[in-house]
Amino acid sequence: MQNTEPGNQHDIVARPLRHPGRIIAAVVITAILAWLVWSLISAPTVNHEIIFKYLFDPLILQGAALTVWLTVLSMAIATILATTLAVMKLSENVLLRIIASAYIEFFRGTPLLLQIVFWGYLGIIFPNIIIGIPFSNVVFFNQPTSVVITSFAAGLIALSLNEAAYSAEIVRAGILSVDSGQSEAAKSLGMSGWYTMRRIVLPQAMRVILPPMGNETISMLKSTSLLAVIAVTELYTTATQISSQNLAQIELLVVAAFWYLVMNTILGFPQRYLERRFGRGFTPQGGGLTRTTRVWSSKPKQTKAGASDER
């Protein structure tokens, strides 16, 4: 390491430029925020006791747990499906490409709310789910749709299938971001296409895939509230069911909002961990193990003294 950059000597001693505009902006914005918070807290129509009473209500906590469970499950299913769709869309097989594109078009092109209601009403279109050999009398499985596809299952299907369409494009962009030399090197070592995808391409694509997928997960956590229309007892549904009885609508919305915020904040931790994990080898100096750190403290004093000596 050379230490000859002029920046290390701190030979510039100048009064910092003033930024009065920044200070004024900060004061104004803080004042507006404080006023907003205060009006919300002091509003006579909002009963704080009810908020605190329901904040840790077992029903609310159960609803929050179901929301997390739905988010995790549907993101897991969506990710697997999305990777499959992305690989299909990049395949040399025209039919696979068309099917993947049509899927993505369809599920991105129709409202999520509509899709949720559709899966919720599946039992009206197909009263029974029958699995057997078509055009014969052989039946392996025959059950009423409402028994097999509960509202939870319908919600899970709706969220997963819809999310897969969005995530597929994210995964595809990630795969395309990996230099083609990587697959060539893998091929030259005798790796199969699938092995190359799993061990070489996807781990590198993760770096590009993870940040937008974090966004998607946050979005998913909030989208679970749409399942209220098919009566899945997640957080939002539970909150509105309680408020329909005690008429404390605003209070229970605050309770629900609080938990959504808490859960989304917690989601940031695994996100950061994963980004670090898959960022290995990509930071400016490799694994970030030998990064040079500069010590700023005490040095400026020395040079200030040196500078005044010169005068």
Binding site: D179, G181, E184, A185, S188, I200, Q204, F278, R280, F282
Partner: peptide
Amino acid sequence: IGMVFQRFNLFPH
């Protein structure tokens, strides 16, 4: 058959 490339193509991860 081993191959060595102009741009190395090491696996960066």
